[in-house]
Structure formats: structure tokens, C-alpha cells
Amino acid sequence: MRVTSVIRSLVLLLTLLASWFLMQTYFQHSWKAISLRSWLGATKKPSSERLPRHKCGNQKSCPQNYFAFKIISGAANVVGPSICFEDLVLMSSVKNNIGRGLNIALVNGTTGQLLKTDAFDMYSGDITKLQTFLQGIKRGTLVLTASYDDAATKMNDKVRAYFTELGSSHVGKLAFRDNWVFLGAKGLLNKSPFEKHIKNDGETNKYDGWPELLEMEGCAPRKMD
């Protein structure tokens, strides 16, 4: 009887020890797992603290009565330009509505409605077509323009004068393979603040025969004047 009692006691003790060991191991690993998940979770910003996405991917949002836009010129003769307005891509390689030369989108300056897009090849002699296009722009229309490859070849004084009337300060000196992005308006009383121009210079060009691309974003007021 004594031997049996001793054996039972030993078995009970071993059972208790095994149970204690299993519980310790389980809870210890669970604690580590929970702690690891909590730690990883703590590194993520709450949704309320995440940076908001602005229209056209711009760095900031626009106030009321302003339109968000982003214009990117072409990169050499390889990567085409893109024009975004109010978070809608108007022209791009993906939309397959761009071409080398000048890429222009017309937008209603009051409603923001897209009116027309067109691309003008300045090598093949689209200059007459471009003149007709620019001459037909109605007052109050926003004009978003991006160069690709070369925009100045065969550009005559008449075309330059049309863009000057739209508010451009740089079109008069636009030369072979210069990069140019511009947003103006028909009936603009002053020069447009939305324009960038970079010269084609063999010593500073980012690409072999072309300067780096230009990117311009901002907020255009309704009925620019």
C-alpha cells in the first residue's frame, strides 16, 4: 500500500509539473506574440494621422473656387507628357492621345469641364492646324500645355503671339528641344503665374540631347484674370 501511494504521489507530482511547464510555455509564447503584434501595430499611424491624398497627387489641396492641376512635360523623345486636371488625367501615354510637339487641353474656366484635347507635331507641319486651334479658343477657357521632344521647330511668330495673349512669358524665347509647361487662359489680363521653361543646353542637359522633364502643379482660380 505504501509503495502504491508513493507511486501515485509521484505520478500526480509529475502530472502537475508537466501541466505547469506547458502552461508556462504557452502563456510565455502567447505573451511574446501579442507583444510583437502590439509593437508592430504601434508603428503604424492611425488612419486619422495618415497624410491625405490630394487631387492629381499634388502636395496640397486647393481652396474652394480653385482647380487642382498638374502638368508634366515629356522626357526626351521617350517618355510622353501628362496633363491632370481636378484629379482627371486629360492627356497621357496611357490614354494614347499625346504626340511629339505640343500637347494642349482646353477646359471651361468656370465649370472645369474638359472641352478638347489635341497634339500638334511641330516637325511635320501642324503649324497651320495649331494656328486655327489657338484662334478658335473662346474667352474664359483654360489652356494647359506640355511639350514633348521638340515644341519650337516651325513655331512662327503668329503662334507665339497667340500664346502670349494667353499669358505666356516664355513662348517668345522657346527654342529647339526646350521643355515647356504652361497654363493660361483666353482673356487673361496679366501674365500667367503657371509656367516653366528649361533651355536645351548640351552642357547641362540631363539626357543626351534633351533637358530634364518639367513638372508643375498648382491651383488655378476659376475665371482667371
Results as ranks from 00 to 15, higher is better:
residue 188 L to F: 07
residue 70 K to S: 11
residue 96 N to F: 02
residue 219 C to N: 10
residue 58 N to C: 15
residue 210 W to H: 15
residue 10 L to G: 01
residue 156 N to R: 12
residue 160 R to D: 04
residue 150 D to R: 03
residue 217 E to D: 13
residue 58 N to H: 07
residue 129 K to Q: 12
residue 90 L to V: 07
residue 73 S to M: 08
residue 103 N to K: 08
residue 64 Q to S: 14
residue 95 K to I: 03
residue 182 F to Y: 06
residue 139 R to S: 13
residue 125 G to F: 06
residue 187 G to E: 11
residue 105 A to V: 08
residue 103 N to T: 03
residue 191 K to Y: 11
residue 161 A to P: 01
residue 92 S to Q: 10
residue 140 G to S: 07
residue 46 P to H: 07
residue 7 I to N: 04
residue 206 K to V: 13
residue 101 G to C: 06
residue 130 L to M: 03
residue 33 A to F: 10
residue 119 A to P: 00
residue 104 I to G: 00
residue 158 K to M: 09
residue 222 R to F: 10
residue 84 C to P: 00
residue 180 W to E: 00
residue 136 G to N: 15
residue 156 N to L: 11
residue 67 F to S: 09
residue 163 F to H: 05
residue 73 S to Q: 08
residue 31 W to S: 11
residue 146 A to M: 01
residue 23 M to G: 09
residue 1 M to P: 12
residue 125 G to L: 10
residue 155 M to G: 02
residue 110 T to H: 07
residue 7 I to L: 15
residue 75 A to Q: 12
residue 117 T to W: 03
residue 100 R to C: 03
residue 45 K to P: 02
residue 87 D to S: 12
residue 201 D to W: 06
residue 206 K to L: 15
residue 34 I to S: 04
residue 195 E to I: 06
residue 69 F to S: 09
residue 202 G to K: 13
residue 114 L to P: 05
residue 49 E to V: 05
residue 34 I to A: 09
residue 192 S to V: 08
residue 79 V to T: 12
residue 77 N to I: 12
residue 30 S to T: 15
residue 213 L to T: 03
residue 100 R to S: 08
residue 107 V to D: 03
residue 114 L to V: 09
residue 50 R to D: 01
residue 108 N to Q: 08
residue 176 F to H: 14
residue 138 K to S: 15
residue 21 F to S: 09
residue 166 L to D: 02
residue 110 T to K: 08
residue 58 N to M: 14
residue 10 L to T: 10
residue 89 V to H: 09
residue 107 V to Q: 06
residue 167 G to R: 02
residue 61 S to T: 12
residue 27 F to M: 13
residue 198 I to P: 00
residue 15 T to Y: 13
residue 120 F to E: 02
residue 161 A to S: 15
residue 87 D to G: 06
residue 193 P to G: 07
residue 140 G to C: 09
residue 103 N to R: 09
residue 130 L to W: 06
residue 81 P to N: 02
residue 71 I to Q: 01
residue 67 F to T: 05
residue 169 S to I: 07
residue 116 K to V: 01
